[in-house]
């Protein structure tokens, strides 16, 4: 220890202190601050770039998911549309069938009714003509009768025989 104190050089201490502090101040201004700032800036830049890449990746994933979702939706919509169309088609067909059936029935019924009424009309006309004929016959018979009794009777018998034939 004594030797250390004996060896201690005040001059060297003084110069070391002066030179070191001078060096410290110079380096701080001209070296450390610019270097540390540059390094920090670069690190920040790298961090930002990494963050941006991560965000872009996420965005990308989102976009993919979105498009997939859209595709799925579109597919579902298409399926739904097709199904609906099929249903509509079926319903239209069945409706048409029903309608056709109904119409057919109706036409048939009308036809039947027409036939019936025609028949009735025909029968009625026939009846009327028969009645007319009967009347005319009766008239003629009566006229003959009035002239010849025998003949009149014979005519009535013949006429009646004819009618029975009808």
């Amino acid at each position: 220890m004594e030797k250390l104190i004996e060896q201690f050089s005040l001059g060297l201490f003084f110069w070391q202190l002066v030179l070191f502090v001078g060096l410290l101040l110079l380096l701080r201004k001209f070296a450390w601050k610019p270097i540390l700032n540059a390094v920090e800036k670069r690190e920040e830049g790298i961090q930002n770039a990494l963050d941006a890449a991560e965000a872009a990746k996420k965005e990308m994933q989102n976009v993919t998911a979105d498009s997939e979702k859209l595709l799925k939706e579109a597919r579902a919509e298409r399926d739904a549309l097709l199904k609906e169309a099929r249903e509509i088609k079926e319903s239209i067909i069945s409706e048409a069938k029903e309608q056709a059936n109904a119409e057919g029935d109706k036409i048939i019924k009308q036809a039947q009714a027409a036939i019936e009424s025609e028949k009735k009309a025909a029968v009625a006309e026939i009846k009327a003509q028969v009645a007319n004929l009967s009347l005319e016959i009766a008239e003629k018979v009566i006229k003959e009768e009035l002239s010849n009794k025998d003949k009149q009777l014979k005519l009535v018998d013949d006429m009646l025989g004819d009618i029975k034939l009808n």
Binding site: F20, L23, L26, F30, A31
Partner: peptide, 21 residues
């Protein structure tokens, strides 16, 4: 030693200033 300290200081200054610039 003082000369050497000064030389090392100069060396460091030049070296790190060039790095900084």
């Amino acid at each position: 030693n003082v000369v050497f300290i000064a030389l090392v200081g100069l060396l460091m200054f030049l070296m790190f200033r060039s790095v900084a610039s």
